[in-house]
């Protein structure tokens, strides 16, 4: 991994005695990475981001953000943040929103003005800059929020559900914008429920379940452990069904699914089928999607079992 922009260890957060939002989370995010944090509602994703941004105080935490100990405000000058359910002060216009938050991030006045114009253009809001933010639609607020997060030209950007409220074109624009950010060496930390998008964008993901990291790695790493082979046959499997099941195969009509990466085991099963005179039409290795991995992580079951349950 490149130099860690986020390096946290054993982050815990308790709300009172009964709610344990985070139970010892450790993460490393390298410079220039697009990192995705997944998890079901209540998993602690937003709490973790808020701890990194000093919005929530951790019960326990060690580590650094942009090379400085957690909890310091200094590094926040180089951080951009788009929260979930964003609200802007009703008395500000779009351009004023950008300039106000940039001023809070210590951006000089001349730079604020220039960047506000540039970013409004970039998020397709240049003709709305002088309209009060209270009149914006949800999608427009989201665009403005993304622009706001980039006003200080941050090294690290936290985006919580960035495509929430956006139409398909808006989502595509956001993906392009994120790609552009990574080209410029920025680090992006993404919280999202839209797994297909994360799969397209993220270099690495971490799946948070009940306040703990359940899975972590690149998309390839996470999904390569979750391969299944699908064997399609002509005719029935009546004579060999018991043997197929004994070898871990799941029968679905005239198809057999075998979970795991062990090609030898699949070959042995093929030998059994051929020995029984079954005509094999195709053998296809299938890689699972991030969604499958997510479901598995959340339900704590094997991918094959999870898939079977899905079917």
């Amino acid at each position: 991994m490149k130099d860690a922009v986020i390096d946290i260890r054993n982050v815990r957060k308790d709300f009172g005695r009964k709610v344990h939002a985070l139970r010892g989370v450790s993460l490393r995010v390298g410079a220039g990475e697009v990192f995705g944090l997944l998890g079901p509602n209540g998993a602690g994703k937003s709490t973790l981001v808020k701890i990194l941004l000093t919005i929530v105080r951790p019960t326990q935490a060690e580590g650094t953000l942009l090379g400085q100990p957690l909890g310091r405000r200094g590094p926040l000058a180089q951080v951009g943040y788009l929260p979930e359910n964003l609200r802007f002060p009703a008395h500000l216009r779009g351009r004023q929103v950008l300039e106000h938050y940039a001023a809070l991030a210590k951006v000089p006045r001349a730079v604020r003005r220039r960047r506000a114009a540039e970013l409004l253009e970039r998020v397709g809001m240049s003709s709305w800059g002088d309209t009060p933010a209270s009149r914006y639609s949800k999608g427009m607020l989201q665009r403005l929020g993304i622009a706001q997060a980039l006003m200080n030209d941050p090294k690290l950007v936290f985006l919580d559900e960035p495509t929430d409220g956006l139409d398909p074109l808006g989502r595509r624009d956001v993906r392009h914008m994120l790609a552009d950010l990574t080209k410029r060496g920025k680090t992006v930390f993404l919280n999202s429920h839209i797994l297909s998008e994360l799969e397209m964008i993220c270099d690495r993901v971490s799946i948070l379940v009940q306040g703990q990291v359940a899975r972590e790695g690149t998309i390839a790493q996470l999904t390569e452990h979750s391969v299944t082979y699908r064997i399609t046959v002509a005719g029935g499997l009546d004579g060999v069904a018991a043997e197929v099941r004994k070898r871990g195969g799941v029968i679905d009509g005239n198809a057999i699914s075998v979970a795991g990466r062990d090609a030898a085991a699949v070959n042995q099963l093929i030998d059994v089928l051929r020995g029984a005179g079954v005509l094999i039409e195709s053998v296809t290795p299938q890689r699972f999607s991030l969604e499958d991995v997510f479901v598995e992580a959340v339900h704590g079951r094997g991918v094959g079992a999870a898939l079977e349950a899905e079917r």
């Binding site: 200094g74 926040l76 000058a77």
Partner: peptide
Amino acid sequence: SMMERGAIDVVLSKP
């Protein structure tokens, strides 16, 4: 209104 969820988060994320 400053402390509403979604509004305070942005402000507190500034240095």
